[in-house]
Design a binder for these strands. Sequence first.
DNA 1: TATTGTTATACTCTATAACTATA
DNA 2: TATAGTTATAGAGTATAACAATA
Lengths: 148, 148
Amino acid sequence: MPDLSHGDAIDTAAVNSLRSAVMRLSRRLKHQRVDESLSPTEMSVLGTLSMCSSATPGELARKEHVQPPSMTRIVALLEAKGLVRLEPHPDDRRQKVVTQTERAEAMLEESRRRRNAWLATLAEGLDEDEWAKLRAAAPVLEKLAHLS
Amino acid sequence: MPDLSHGDAIDTAAVNSLRSAVMRLSRRLKHQRVDESLSPTEMSVLGTLSMCSSATPGELARKEHVQPPSMTRIVALLEAKGLVRLEPHPDDRRQKVVTQTERAEAMLEESRRRRNAWLATLAEGLDEDEWAKLRAAAPVLEKLAHLS
DNA sequence: TATTGTTATACTCTATAACTATA
DNA sequence: TATAGTTATAGAGTATAACAATA
């Protein structure tokens, strides 16, 4: 565990800062959707699928920290948009296997370009040093978001 | 503007990582409310007010990146909970001035303690170096969230 | 005529509870 | 009896459009 005993005031400020920034950024990111019809969580699910290639709805729900019924809806919407395929699980007939389509991969690619452009524009207000700090922290933030 | 010409691949990864982490963290932070009756944006408004002491609903809407009607509702809810006061604007009778109450400040204090505890628990999975990176990036993230 | 804030309304996302099918 | 997923339903939060009051 990080040593929090040294600068309680500093860490409290960091926590507040982090929380506030995360909430604000998330609100703004919602407006930067590539495809207007794709919600942040839908995007996140596609991102997850592009990493692990396939997963069951239950696994996705746990990874995205969403309840199973919500994931049912999300997966159904993604399937209707032709972005994922739903197949029966080979070993367990209760489960399903979700995989992404080629179209999803192409969309993620386009999405990356757009978000990169948006963030780059936003980052015009940052200097090199600040940007470097952000880049260094990104994987840590991701790890934090996945910790239980 | 940061030099993005060097590592397109690296920056694309950082952007994706950042976006994904921010969305996931924000979803989890929603569940870590101090006061169950206080939404993330309501909390954020109180945080903003504790910094700038007073603001009009319009200013708050712009700062929080929320539409004016949403801020009307948020301010009304906060007032009903005794966390802000609404006074007429001295110079412009169309506007109002929002200020936080002592109760709000006390609540923010309690909130900070709790969030600190939650994040500290979560941060047990991080090493000192990772935590330091996060702390260094916090003010940058905040700046980014405020950039237009 | 432009601006600040509000009201009325609808939409999106998520959750909980109850149900079905399979293990 | 427990688990994976679904259906039905409700609630929270936000947006847009139309309106009121003031500049």
